[in-house]
Nucleic acid binder design. Structure first.
Lengths: 241, 241
DNA sequence: CGCAGTTTTGAAAAAGATCAAGGCTAGTGG
DNA sequence: CCACTAGCCTTGATCTTTTTCAAAACTGCG
C-alpha cells in the first residue's frame, strides 16, 4: 500500500484512463482538447482518515476525486463539526478558490483509501480562458451546487428533524446504494456521528430517529455501515418530495 | 408613480448611468465592451410587496438590482418561509438558471420600491463566450456565494441561536447601516418576522433574544425598522468572529 | 474471543416552539 | 396635527423537542 502523501505525475495518459474524463464538466470535450491539460494533472493517494485539505489552507489546485470518497466539513471554535458534503468519484472541489486567493472554507478528509487528481490553478485558468464553454459548464455546475445548498438551508430552517433524516437517507439511497435480492441497501458513507454532523443534530438524536424508523419497519440496519430500505415510498412521503 | 410592471428599454445609455456598471462582476470591463450588451438590457420597476419571481418559474434572464432591495425565499409545503438572501443595489440573481433550463428554486419579493435591470439569457451567454474573463469573474462571485451559504449551514448546524442573532446583526451592520452622532444605526431590511425567517427560528424567539440584548445594553431599538448598535465588539465576541 | 471504539438507551435538563393576550407603531384620515 | 386602527411586536405560560450526561450494549477488527 502507498503512504498517504504519494505524489506522482503518472496521469499523463493515465494508462489511457483520463481521470479528467470522469468529471461531467469535462466529459463533453474532445479528447484532443483534454490533452492540453492532461500533462499538468497530478495524482495522489491518501489513506483513510488522512486530512487532504485543512480549513484555512490556501488552495491552489482543482481537486478531482478519481476513486473513493471524502467528507468536507467545518469545525467550530467549540470543536463541533458540520459536514457540508460527501464527495465521491467524479466530484471535484476547490473550484471556488481558484480565482480569488482565498483560504479554503472547509477541511477535507478521506473516508476511505482515496485517489485524487489535482490541476494547478494557473493551468486551469488558462484552459478556461481558451475554452469558455467549459467555464459555462462550471458556472452551471456551481449553480447546481448553490441550489443544493439552498435546499439544505431551507431544510435546516423549516423542516423537522424527522423529515431531514428521511431526506438524508433518500440522498444516500441515490448516491451510495446497491440492490440485493431483498431490495436496496445503502452503504453508509458516514458513521452515525458523521450523519448527525451533516444534519446538525446530536449523535444520540439521530440514533433514536433511526431506531424509531426501524421499529416501525421502514428500514433495517445491517451492521453499522449499511442499512436496508424497506419502504422507500414512506421515506419519500416523510421527506415531503 | 409607475405601476409594478412597467417595462422600458431606456437603459440604452441610462442617461449615461450604465446600470450594468453597478455590478462588480462587470465593473472591470471597458465601457465599449459593456456597450455590446447595453442594448439588450431592460429596466423594470416593482412596487413594495410585489412578487418579482415565483418559485418554480422558468428564469430566462439575469436580474440586476439597480435600486432598492428584495428578499429571496423558499416556502415549505406547510407555508413556512425560509429567507435565503436579501439582495440590494448592485447584487444580481438568476445566474444559476442561465445555463440549465431549470426552474427558480426561490421566490423574489420587493421589500420596497425597486428598479431592476434584466438581461436575456441568450444575450448573456453570447457575451460570456466572447468575454471569458467575465465568466471567470462570475465563477469567482459564485464561489463567494457558495462560501456564504456554507457558513450559513454551519451556523444553523452547530451554533447557538444567540450566536446567530449576533451574526445576523453584524451582517446587517455591514450592509444596511449608517452612522449618526451617537454611533451606527442599522436600517433593518426585514421585519422581526423576516429576520426570524432568515434564521429559521420563531418570531417570538427572535423577539426575546433582541429584548435580552437590549436589556443588557448592547443594542437599542429605534422604532421597529431601525436598531442602534451600542457595543459592536460584544456582538463580535458573541458571534465568535 | 476479547477489546476498543461506536452506538444505543435512559433520565433529566435546557432550549425553542406554540398558544394566547396585550401593547406598540406607523400610516391614515378626519 | 391628533386620534384611530390594522398590522406588528412583545410577553407570559405551557408544551414539545432536542440536548446532555451517564452507562450499558453492540460491532468489527485483530
Amino acid at each position: 500500500m502507498k503512504g498517504s502523501e504519494n505524489l506522482e505525475n503518472i496521469c499523463d495518459y493515465c494508462q489511457h484512463d483520463l481521470c479528467i474524463k470522469r468529471v461531467p464538466v469535462f466529459a463533453p470535450l474532445e479528447i484532443n482538447v483534454l490533452e492540453e491539460i492532461v500533462p499538468y494533472v497530478m495524482r495522489r493517494n491518501y489513506a483513510r482518515g488522512s486530512l487532504i485539505v485543512h480549513e484555512g489552507d490556501l488552495l491552489t489546485s482543482l481537486y478531482i476525486i478519481n476513486k473513493g470518497s471524502v467528507k468536507a466539513f467545518k469545525t467550530s471554535l467549540q470543536g463541533k463539526e458540520q459536514i457540508l458534503y460527501v464527495f465521491a468519484e467524479g466530484d471535484f472541489f476547490g473550484e471556488s478558490y481558484l480565482f480569488n486567493n482565498e483560504e479554503s472554507g472547509y477541511s477535507i478528509e478521506a473516508l476511505e483509501e482515496v485517489q485524487i487528481c489535482t490541476l494547478e490553478k494557473s493551468h486551469f485558468q488558462n484552459f478556461l480562458l481558451a475554452n469558455p464553454e467549459v467555464a459555462l459548464k462550471i458556472i452551471e455546475e456551481l449553480g447546481r451546487r448553490i441550489n443544493l445548498l439552498e435546499i439544505n438551508i431551507q431544510s435546516m430552517g423549516v423542516r423537522s428533524v424527522d423529515t431531514r433524516v428521511a431526506a438524508l437517507l433518500l440522498e444516500y439511497l441515490e448516491k451510495f446504494s446497491f440492490d440485493d435480492a431483498t431490495g436496496p441497501i445503502i452503504q453508509l458513507p458516514l458513521s452515525r456521528e458523521g450523519m448527525a454532523n451533516s444534519l446538525g443534530i446530536a449523535r444520540e438524536t439521530l440514533s433514536r430517529k433511526l431506531t424509531a424508523l426501524e421499529q416501525q419497519g421502514y428500514i433495517q440496519s445491517v451492521g453499522n455501515k449499511a442499512l436496508r430500505v424497506i419502504d422507500k415510498s414512506y421515506l419519500e412521503k416523510m421527506a415531503g418530495r
